[in-house]
């Protein structure tokens, strides 16, 4: 009963936030001006009839409440209109770019969480050793390093000077299929993923380390040790699972932000993902595209937060009772 109420509360909270984002999105993009004006600014000779037809097509002749209902309906159906820039459906434009981004940011998030956690655990468990000092210094350095700069250094070294990896793009221009294609995509992915992994890694390592250090001072860890449990077992069974919670939350949040793309890294590596699309859409005042990306990334963050909250409740029942 308790847990059902807990879930319900969080789902309601998430739904409320999403509705707010929807309303905000609706108002924001109507506050910037008449879409017809924006759409036709480059067409010099558009007669009033053509304009009226366009207004009807865009549905902006209806009263505002009706427009909002239509907007909600369209959003539910995944219809986001047409890009001003290309004239193609927004859904199509975004779905083309979403996979490269998911691949890039997703892979980097998984790798950075994995290595970050391992480094954090080792650092905390061997506190004060050369590894701990070194990894803490490294994590802090990587954490505070501007990603774009790091990307540039890796680009110059591995693409320019050594020529091991391509300097940009998602795939080569040769028509490849099957395994060759997979390898080709992986080659293009390597440097941007490496940059992002190094960029995200520090945060995971630092949080894991401090969380584990805290847990190591807890009584149950001392008790386990006193019972004569082997050091490795204490770490694996008692300390790490309890210390994972904050890192776990961070991982969920990071996943939520995947859809926001990695604007700077995609720019540096000329990687055709959502980040680049966002940049271009803003550059061209392509409101339908910006609106859809804005909504999608907000929804992803809200959804992942919800997932984190719910799972957290199960991992740590104390939260549910609070």
């Amino acid at each position: 009963m308790q847990s059902r109420r807990y879930i319900f509360r969080h789902v309601l909270h998430a739904a409320g936030t999403l509705l707010f984002v929807l309303a905000f999105n609706f108002v924001l993009f109507r506050a910037v001006g008449d879409p017809v004006e924006l759409l036709t600014r480059s067409t010099l000779h558009l007669d009033p009839q053509e304009k009226a037809a366009l207004r009807e097509e865009l549905g902006i002749d209806d009263p505002i409440p009706q427009q909002f209902v239509n907007y909600l309906g369209d959003t539910m159906r995944g219809e986001f209109g047409y890009s001003f820039m290309s004239g193609r459906p927004v859904t199509e434009t975004i779905s083309e770019k979403i996979w490269p981004t998911l691949l890039l940011v997703g892979t980097a998030t998984i790798l950075s969480a994995l290595f970050g956690i391992l480094i954090g655990i080792k650092g905390a468990w061997q506190r004060g050793t050369a590894f701990d000092t070194g990894s803490l210094f490294g994590s802090l350095t990587l954490y505070s390093m501007p990603e774009g700069w790091l990307g540039m250094i890796l680009l110059i070294t591995f693409a320019g000077v050594l020529g091991w990896f391509p300097a940009g793009g998602y795939e080569s221009t040769d028509p490849l299929t099957g395994f060759e294609h997979v390898l080709d995509v992986a080659r293009h992915l390597f440097l941007p993923v490496l940059t992002l992994t190094l960029g995200y890694l520090g945060e995971f390592a630092i949080i894991m380390r401090s969380s584990l250090l805290e847990v190591m001072r807890e009584d149950f860890v001392q008790t386990a040790r006193a019972k004569g449990v082997r050091d490795k077992e204490v770490r694996r069974r008692h300390a790490v699972p309890n210390a994972l919670l904050p890192t776990f939350t961070l991982a969920f949040y990071s996943v939520g932000f995947i859809l926001g793309g990695a604007v700077i890294i995609e720019e540096v590596f000329s990687y055709p993902g959502l980040g680049q699309l966002t940049y271009q859409a803003i550059d061209n005042l392509d409101y339908p595209v910006i609106q859809a990306i804005f909504l999608l990334s907000s929804a992803a963050v809200i959804f992942c937060n919800l997932l984190a909250d719910i799972t957290y409740g199960y991992l740590d029942p104390r939260i549910k009772e609070a």
């Binding site: 680009l155 320019g160 000077v161 940009g168 540096v268 590596f269």
Partner: peptide, 20 residues
Amino acid sequence: VVYHVYTSDEGMVQALKSGE
């Protein structure tokens, strides 16, 4: 002729250096 689109000048310069 294949035209590659680079969003960063640095990327384009490195591609030229490596012969891409």
